[in-house]
C-alpha cells in the first residue's frame, strides 16, 4: 500500500485570519448603547442585508461582514472603512433583516464614532462647513425663477442663524474647526 505523503504547507486561505489580540471587546457594547444599536447582537449572519444592498458588490466589506466585525470588536477596521461613508442610507438592508437589526442606523452610529475621532471624508467635512457657515445646504441664487412662478423671491420664514448657532456648539463645530 502506497503511503500518502502529507503536505507540510498550510491550507490555502482567502483572507488573513483575524488577529484576536487586536480585537476591542468594548466596541460591540459601545454600538449597542447608541441609538438603534440594541438589536445588533441578534445578527445571525444570514447575509440578507448584503443581498438587499444595491452596492455591496463593489464593497470589500459587505454589510453582514461589517455587522459581524462590530460584534467581534474590529473597531479600527470598521471606523476607517470607506464602506460606512458610501452607505446610501437607503435602508433596504434594515428593512429586510429577519432579526430586526437596524443595519443602516448602526452604520450611522459608526459614522458618528468615526467623526468623533476625526475620520471623516473631506467632502463630508466640506458639507459640515457649508452648514456651519451658511446655515443651509442650498441657497436661492436665481430668485427671478421664483418670481416668474409667483413665489416670494426670498423664502418666507427662512432663518439660517439658528442652525449655525446650534452647530457651533456641537460636533460639527469641532470637526470643521479642527480641519482649518
Amino acid at each position: 500500500m502506497a503511503e500518502t505523503k502529507e503536505s507540510a504547507e498550510p491550507p490555502t486561505i482567502l483572507v488573513d485570519p483575524i488577529d484576536m489580540s487586536k480585537l476591542d471587546q468594548s466596541f460591540c457594547n459601545e454600538i449597542k448603547s447608541m441609538p438603534y444599536g440594541e438589536e445588533l447582537v441578534a445578527c445571525f449572519a444570514c447575509t440578507t442585508c448584503t443581498a438587499a444592498c444595491p452596492i455591496a458588490n463593489q464593497w470589500d466589506y459587505k454589510p453582514h461582514q461589517l455587522i459581524r466585525m462590530i460584534i467581534l470588536g474590529m473597531r479600527e477596521e470598521v471606523l476607517s472603512s470607506k464602506e460606512i461613508w458610501e452607505c446610501l442610507t437607503c435602508f433596504q438592508c434594515q428593512e429586510r433583516c429577519p432579526q430586526k437589526v437596524r443595519v443602516t442606523d448602526i452604520f450611522f452610529d459608526c459614522k458618528n464614532l468615526a467623526a468623533e475621532e476625526g475620520k471623516v471624508p473631506n467632502s463630508i467635512v466640506a458639507l459640515g462647513k457649508l452648514l456651519l457657515e451658511t446655515g443651509q445646504l442650498y441657497e436661492v441664487t436665481e430668485d427671478w425663477q421664483r418670481e416668474d412662478l409667483d413665489l416670494e423671491p426670498e423664502v418666507p420664514g427662512l432663518a439660517t442663524e439658528p442652525l449655525k448657532e446650534i452647530l457651533k456648539t456641537t460636533r460639527t463645530g469641532r470637526l470643521v474647526g479642527s480641519d482649518e
Binding site: 441609538p35 450611522f108 458618528n112 467623526a115 463630508i124 467635512v125 458639507l127 452647530l167 456641537t170 460639527t172
Partner: peptide, 10 residues
Amino acid sequence: PNLRAIDFFG
C-alpha cells in the same frame, strides 16, 4: 443625512 452621519446630537 450628512449631518446625522457626523453630528447626531446637532
